[in-house]
């Protein structure tokens, strides 16, 4: 559409099958690092000078969630260049930040297009944006609206008021479930490489069956840590993610022991399995702190100071037990 500052692309609020397919693939890590839209100003519906400006990241899933939430409304959508990263992670890195917002306000010539001086940001963008700095440098005041794009209509209808519900985070079963595919894909290489090494060592020393068994134990421990730990997060005991993961891994160790007839293993391999497998699961669940919206850096540091030596120690001891058992 035509504006006093030149042409602005008009976009739709309705997502097509391609948008849903793209999101689904990105969840599995396919094309995820290049899933983006061009940064800049867009017109949703037929906005006028008095209509609100909403700011988002150029990760396509972020942009889609905002435009979809605003169906039937007239708004300006200012998309920041975050290099295809979502609002929260980009704010943490500073790309969804004061500098980019100020530059984008200027380069889009917003002051010539709208009659007000306010931009509306997602609350999770606040770790990258200094509202008073933006106001000082651009003349636009910043309003932090809500955590979820879905709450934007209510926020706008209530005259730009944030309710307590709009400001509180959720991390329900489904929220955790959608994060797991990409975690699996990212871990795939290390699972395959270490699992392959394990398979070969056991196959060479104790036969093909032992190789397969060891690989199964390893795979199960990884899945317990990557899939089961995060899914059962609120129900696993303790506050520490490593402890939660170790519990999931311990349960897997018992199942694995019963499943493959561990009664015939003897003391050495049994001790080794019950030490190493929970440690593997603990590591993977500890890593899920990066996906959780409530863990602090200092907390993760504290956990790592205790958990990394404990996990490393468990793996080393279990290897020693296996080696000693082999040569005695």
């Amino acid at each position: 559409m035509e504006t006093p500052a030149g042409r602005v692309a008009r976009i739709s609020s309705v997502l097509g099958p391609g948008d849903h397919l793209g999101a689904c693939l990105a969840r599995w890590g396919i094309g995820r690092m290049s899933y983006m839209v061009p940064a800049g100003l867009y017109a949703l519906g037929n906005p006028a000078a008095a209509d609100p400006i909403l700011v988002t990241a150029n990760y396509k899933m972020s942009y889609d969630s905002v435009r979809q939430a605003l169906v039937g409304r007239n708004c300006w959508l200012l998309v920041l260049e975050t290099y295809g990263i979502n609002v929260w992670c980009a704010a943490g890195k500073g790309t969804f930040g004061t500098g980019e917002l100020v530059n984008r306000i200027t380069s889009s010539r917003l002051a010539n297009i709208v009659s007000h001086r306010r931009v509306i940001l997602p609350i999770l963008g606040a770790p990258g944006v200094s509202a008073h700095e933006v106001a000082r440098r651009s003349g636009f005041s910043v309003s932090y609206a809500a955590i979820r794009a879905n709450d934007l209509p209510e926020y706008l209808d209530k005259g730009l008021t944030t309710t307590p519900a709009m400001q509180s985070l959720n991390f329900n079963f489904y929220d955790r479930l959608v994060l797991i595919p990409v975690e699996l894909v990212l871990a795939l290489k290390s699972i395959a490489v270490a699992g392959g090494g394990l398979f070969v060592s056991f196959a060479v020393t104790s036969g093909l069956g032992a190789g397969l068994t060891a690989f199964l134990g390893w795979l199960g421990a990884c899945l317990a840590g990557i899939v089961v730990g995060p899914l059962l997060l609120p129900w696993l005991p303790g506050r520490s993610f490593a402890v939660k993961g170790a519990v999931a891994g311990l349960v897997w160790s018992v199942l694995f022991f019963l499943l493959v007839g561990g009664q015939a293993w003897g003391a050495g391999p049994t001790i080794a399995a019950f030490l190493a497998l929970p440690a593997v699961s603990a590591f993977h669940t500890l890593n899920f702190t990066g996906c959780s919206p409530y863990t602090s850096r200092s907390g993760v540091k504290k956990e790592m100071r205790m958990a990394i030596p404990a996990m490393g120690g468990a793996v080393v001891v279990s290897l020693l037990v296996l080696l000693v058992g082999r040569f005695l």
Binding site: A91, G92, I123, A126, P127, G128, V129, S130, A131, H132, F283, L286, N287, F288, T289, G290, C291, P293, Y294, T295, S296, R297, S298, G299, V300, E303, M304
Partner: peptide, 24 residues
């Protein structure tokens, strides 16, 4: 969770927090 939003948005710098990457 030490995201740092409060410190960055405090106009009088009354808040401090050690923020940064939080995954293992």
């Amino acid at each position: 969770m030490e995201c740092g939003a409060c410190a960055l948005n405090c106009p009088v710098k009354a808040i401090t927090v050690d923020c940064g990457v939080g995954c293992a």
